[in-house]
């Protein structure tokens, strides 16, 4: 069985073994293979000498270059913080209006804020801050807690219904589930709310009158006599057409029946003061119809 043959094509001998018709040539390992084995091994050896590489009993070979990835990260983060600090410290110290007047600082805001918004806020408020079901739009000028600089900064700092000790707190009560209104009453109230917003609810004047009475008894304490909302309480204006959860019959029924308690994280410990200020400038510029 062990008959060595010469392969006519390559001129190499076979090893003389055969497996179900398969044979093997005894060709030398090509020079190039040895060459690259040597190159890669030398490279590895050099790397081991220079860098942290082999474990010892209770330490490891640290390498001649003395490089340590943890130290490197710390240094790089510190260096990056230092370059940003040049302008970020100023932003942290100045009131928003002063920043807006400073074109140099504003150049930094314009560069940094969109990505900050995209990474932290857009997931709920939408990539163009347009809001969505359950999340208020930030471009419509209909503010729950107020749209002036200080109020926005505070909202960012403490969040809404968040675990932050100073958090803004607001809750729409579950009038239906908690038995304050029955289903019929809720539908009437919903029609009245639609009429407040100038929507055609199709309800008769008597029904709306009944709704007004229900509203005065149950809703006005938060949303105001006229339904225009109370910003100190974070109670939304019901006379405009900006909805968080929607103005349809079903959405309004669900809101009044089960209540609502939206949630916005507190950013005090997640973003720096400068970052929160840049975001406040960014979203006020959006609300003013600034950059799209």
């Amino acid at each position: 069985m062990s008959v060595k043959e010469r392969d006519p094509l390559t001129g190499h001998q076979t090893t003389g073994h055969e497996w179900n018709g398969i044979t093997e040539l005894n060709t030398r390992v090509p020079r190039a293979v040895w060459f690259f084995i040597i190159v890669t091994h030398i490279w590895a050896l050099v790397y081991w000498v220079l860098m942290p590489a082999w474990p010892l009993v209770n330490t490891y070979t640290r390498g001649l270059l003395g490089i340590d990835q943890q130290e490197q990260v710390k240094e790089r983060v510190a260096a990056a913080d230092a370059t940003r600090g040049i302008w970020a410290d100023q932003i942290a110290a100045l009131p928003l209006d002063k920043i807006r007047d400073d074109t140099l600082l504003m150049a930094n805001v314009d560069r940094a804020a969109p990505a900050l918004f995209g990474d932290n806020c857009a997931a709920c408020h939408g990539s163009r801050a347009e809001g969505g079901p359950g999340y208020p739009s930030l471009v419509d000028d209909a503010w729950l807690w107020g749209g002036d600089d200080e109020t926005i900064l505070e909202t960012l700092r403490v969040g809404i219904n968040s675990p932050h000790p100073d958090t803004r707190y607001a809750e729409m009560l579950a009038f239906g589930r908690d038995g304050m209104l029955d289903r019929g009453q809720i539908r009437i109230a919903a029609d009245y709310v639609q009429s407040l917003a100038g929507l055609d609810s199709g309800a008769s004047p008597e029904r709306l009158e009944e709704g007004a009475a229900l509203f005065a008894d149950n809703c006005a304490s938060c949303h105001g006599e006229d339904g225009a909302g109370v910003q100190d309480l974070g109670a939304p204006n019901l006379t405009d057409t900006h909805w968080i959860y929607g103005g349809s019959d079903e959405a309004l029924f669900e809101t009044i029946y089960g209540g609502r308690q939206g949630w916005m994280p507190a950013w005090e410990n997640r973003l720096t003061k400068a970052q929160r200020k840049m975001l406040a400038i960014y979203i006020t510029s959006l609300a003013d119809g600034g950059p799209e």
Partner: peptide, 24 residues
């Protein structure tokens, strides 16, 4: 730890030659 990463990296590079030897 970085030394483990070094070993993984260098052995991966040395691995290339036998891998290519198979393909070749």
């Amino acid at each position: 730890p970085q030394w483990v990463q070094t070993l993984g990296m260098t052995f991966s590079v040395m691995l290339l030659v036998p891998s290519w030897a198979s393909a070749g």
